[in-house]
Each structure stands twice: as structure tokens, then as C-alpha cells.
Simulated assay, not measured.
Amino acid sequence: MSGNLTLANVLDDAALLSFEHQMHLSEVLGEHSWNVNIAERRFEFRCADRTLVCTAMHLLGSAAPGPQSWLWSWANPTGYPDEVTAVAKSVRDFGSQQGIPELASAEVPFAAFGEDVEPHQVSWTMMELAKPITGHWTSYQGPAGSGTFVAFLVEHPELQLPPPSGPRVIRVLSQGIAELALTDHRRAVHSYLTRRGLSVTFKPNGESLYFEGDAVNGTVDFDEYGRMTGISGGMQG
């Protein structure tokens, strides 16, 4: 990511890889509850048959309905440990470098994201924005009382994605494009495929791209407006 980035660009960069990580998170956890102790830097998922204790957790911030604003963790007067706010600070530094005030300002009004947005929507947006900047791709948000939502990025070996396969890549592209609000399909698809370690080649006119990896290859087609119109693919021998 470089040069005159907008929030929409960053969200497109995040969208499909984030979508796959959240799919994987749901598959690993199944029905679950969660618990966090920020002072002890402990985040755990309590599943039906076990408790998965995350190896790291990063507190991004909170979205509160009272002030109608998002507050980054590094600016919270509670004074959270540096270890849990370091990733949020890296987002702040990126925002300062790129001139994106929503990432660099301590507190961001809900109005910056549109009219009549809810705390969980703002919290989700901030998690998505943080992912391609920090390289941490598994997120979790939950209620913290009084309508406030708190947002985390979490880590655990079981939450890392397996190598890309043909059926999975095609599912992520087709389902993600259908369900997510993307500004630039070409950018989102290219970002996803390259971040999954696949080689990507656009046709000169940009009407399609070819992707290839050790176990998967395929083609994605776009219309004259840059919208994805078709995808085909399979497994490499």
C-alpha cells in the first residue's frame, strides 16, 4: 500500500483476506463465548469442548454510543499496557504518514463513517482498516456494556490459514464479492490473491487476470466498470 491512500483503498485491501480469516475463525471455534483480561494480556475463546487461549491479543479501541465516537486504545485514559496497544499505535503512525486522520486521531466521530452508523459497525470498520496495515488478520469484537463495542486483533497457530486450495479460493472470491461492500473489485481481488502468495497477471486491458500457485490456478473476469463477472479455477497437478 502506498501513495494517496484512502480509507476505501485500505478497506478493499483488507476485505477478502479478512473474509477468509473470519470464515476460518468460525470453523475453528464453532459455538463459543469469549473472555478477556487486558491487565494480564489474556484473551480466550471458550468452545464446547475446550478453551483456546490466544498466544497474543491486541486491543485496538472502542466505539461508544454516548459520545458517538471511536477511541483508540493508545488514547484511552484508562492507561492500557503498552504490549496491548502497540499494534494500535502502529496504525496511528501509518495514518500520520499517509495523512489519514481517522487512523491518526485519538478519537474519531461516528459521523466520519456515514449517517446513523452503530457502534458495532464502526468497531468492525476499524478492525478491517488495521489488518492490512499491521499484518494481523484475525479480529474479534464484542459488547463491553452500555452499548459500547470493543475491538481486538488476536493470534493463535490454529487461527492461521492453511495453504490456498482451488475450492477455497473460488469460494472466498465468489462469496466475498457477493456479500461485501467493495469499492474496487480489481484492487480487492488482486490484494487477496497476492497476499495468499499467488502470482497474478492482468491482461493488458484489465478485463481479466490469471492467478497461479503451487496447488491452484484460475482466471477472474471483470466488466467495463471493473466489477468481477466470473471466476474459474482448479487444482494444480
Score class of each variant (00 low, 15 high):
177 I>D: 00
86 A>T: 07
169 V>I: 14
132 P>H: 00
167 P>V: 05
180 L>G: 01
82 D>T: 14
166 G>C: 13
23 M>W: 14
36 V>T: 14
100 I>E: 05
32 H>T: 11
23 M>K: 06
219 T>R: 13
166 G>M: 05
126 M>I: 08
12 D>G: 10
237 G>D: 05
145 G>M: 14
83 E>I: 10
175 Q>K: 10
34 W>S: 08
166 G>L: 05
130 A>V: 06
218 G>K: 04
213 G>T: 04
153 L>P: 00
160 Q>E: 15
14 A>I: 07
195 R>Q: 15
165 S>K: 12
176 G>C: 06
103 L>W: 11
234 G>Q: 13
9 N>L: 07
108 V>E: 04
77 P>C: 09
102 E>C: 12
211 F>A: 00
47 C>M: 03
72 W>H: 14
103 L>F: 07
28 V>F: 07
58 H>A: 12
137 W>V: 10
23 M>L: 08
80 Y>N: 05
10 V>K: 15
123 S>W: 00
26 S>K: 12
39 A>R: 09
221 D>G: 11
230 G>R: 01
45 F>P: 02
212 E>I: 07
49 D>Y: 10
35 N>R: 15
133 I>L: 08
44 E>M: 08
50 R>I: 10
50 R>H: 12
28 V>T: 02
7 L>V: 15
78 T>S: 14
66 G>K: 01
15 A>D: 04
48 A>G: 01
99 G>T: 13
11 L>N: 05
183 T>W: 02
161 L>T: 09
13 D>L: 15
216 V>D: 08
46 R>Y: 01
178 A>V: 03
164 P>V: 06
120 H>R: 10
39 A>D: 15
176 G>L: 05
222 F>A: 02
45 F>D: 00
17 L>S: 12
234 G>M: 08
214 D>F: 01
49 D>K: 13
19 F>Q: 01
5 L>M: 13
144 A>T: 03
56 A>G: 03
43 F>L: 09
143 P>N: 02
176 G>M: 12
63 A>Q: 01
67 P>H: 10
122 V>S: 03
68 Q>E: 14
161 L>V: 07
16 L>V: 14
67 P>E: 11
30 G>I: 12
52 L>N: 00
213 G>P: 08
158 E>G: 04
27 E>R: 10
102 E>A: 08
129 L>N: 04
57 M>G: 01
137 W>F: 13
19 F>G: 12
93 D>A: 11
40 E>F: 02
162 P>F: 00
206 G>R: 02
64 A>Y: 02
111 A>R: 01
170 I>S: 13
160 Q>S: 06
111 A>E: 12
75 A>P: 06
59 L>F: 14
100 I>C: 12
28 V>C: 04
165 S>Q: 11
108 V>W: 00
67 P>F: 13
35 N>K: 04
121 Q>K: 04
47 C>H: 01
198 L>S: 03
12 D>I: 12
102 E>D: 11
97 Q>T: 01
151 A>S: 12
15 A>L: 08
95 G>C: 09
149 F>D: 04
188 A>H: 03
218 G>Q: 10
229 T>Y: 06
45 F>V: 06
112 A>Y: 02
13 D>P: 08
192 Y>W: 07
54 C>Y: 02
165 S>W: 15
138 T>Y: 07
213 G>R: 03
178 A>R: 05
46 R>S: 04
178 A>H: 00
212 E>M: 10
181 A>S: 05
114 G>L: 08
172 V>S: 14
223 D>V: 14
63 A>R: 03
